[in-house]
């Protein structure tokens, strides 16, 4: 007889947090990653060694609301919840539409995509260019961290064992003159894990670039973003000069270090990543969204 699997499913976030403060647990929201990670053979329950804490039923973690200039998104909102919510920005909806297929979108959560910290996490490039902040809750209170600090490596995040990711904070509306876009390259439209993901953000005043950001997914252990390279473009005018574009491409050429794996090759990934960036930078105008 296998060892007994312990699981908790509390009615309140507070009870959940006190349990997490007592013991280290595996947190399951949608479970679409965890159940695959610990999969056993047919008929045998996944081997999850730590006690399980289910959180996907907690309404407190499924709220979407505006507070000042911020949009707070409950970590346990499923992708389908977000697609149906009028407050969610269109570029994020477009990114979500590229994730998996309807059945998984009815189950997988935004918080889960972040905490799973896959190098190919579909929502991550866009969350990076939005400068998303994460609200972590524990018995000791609330801690807010930038997503780029939270995600530290492949499946490695700065979550203490007594914390849960409760909310994701995005700007509620893009500033005047801002444009954001997400692109995903995969083997097929549905259920594909990205070979390359790209998110771009630009804010212009007339033709002058006021702010510009890029993030690449699936081309390194975490999302690749460089604030230093971005800064060099601020103050330039669009359309950008060929020399400026070439300079940015060559800077990213040095820091994008993809690998070969079953989904793609390093060479293909780098070529496509740089092509997506070139395409984004070569546009003559950016429609505010």
């Amino acid at each position: 007889m296998a060892e007994k699997i312990i699981a908790y499913r509390f009615d309140q976030v507070d009870q959940t947090l006190s349990q997490l403060n007592k013991e280290d647990c595996t947190i399951i929201a949608g479970g679409t990653d965890v159940m695959v990670l610990y999969k056993s053979r047919r008929g045998v329950p996944p081997k999850i060694t730590k006690p399980i804490v289910f959180i996907d039923h907690l309404n407190e973690l499924k709220q979407v609301y505006k507070k000042g200039k911020d949009l707070h998104i409950g970590a346990c909102c499923t992708y389908s919840d977000l697609l149906n919510d009028p407050l969610i920005p269109t570029p994020l909806k477009n990114a979500i539409k590229t994730i998996a297929a309807p059945a998984i979108r009815n189950r997988g959560t935004l918080g889960g995509n972040i905490c799973n910290a896959s190098p190919a996490g579909d929502t991550l490039p866009l969350l990076y260019v939005y400068n998303a902040k994460l609200v972590l809750r524990s018995v000791s209170g609330v801690r807010i961290v930038a997503i780029s600090d939270f995600i530290q490596g492949v499946r490695r995040v700065d979550r203490k064992s007594n914390e849960i990711l409760a909310e994701i904070i995005l700007p509620s509306e893009l500033e005047e003159g801002a444009y954001a876009v997400f692109e995903k390259v995969g083997n097929r439209n549905a259920d594909a894990i990205a070979k390359v993901g790209f998110a771009g953000y630009i804010r212009t005043n007339g033709e002058v670039i006021k702010d510009i950001r890029f993030a690449f997914g699936a081309v390194g252990p975490t999302m690749v973003r460089s604030v230093d390279i971005e800064k060099k473009l601020i103050g330039k005018t669009i359309p950008l000069a060929g020399a400026d574009i070439a300079q940015v491409l060559s800077a990213f050429d040095k820091i994008i270090k993809p690998i070969d794996d079953q989904r793609s090759t390093a060479r293909y990934r780098k070529t496509v990543a740089l092509n997506l960036l070139r395409y984004f930078l070569s546009r003559k105008q950016y429609q505010h969204n």
Binding site: I28, G30, G31, M35, I52, F54, D56, A103, N106, R107
Partner: peptide, 15 residues
């Protein structure tokens, strides 16, 4: 599950 299409291979019974 509650009228929503889902993959039963990914659902832990406890949830």
């Amino acid at each position: 599950v509650n009228n929503l299409l889902q993959n039963s291979c990914l659902i832990p019974i406890g949830s």
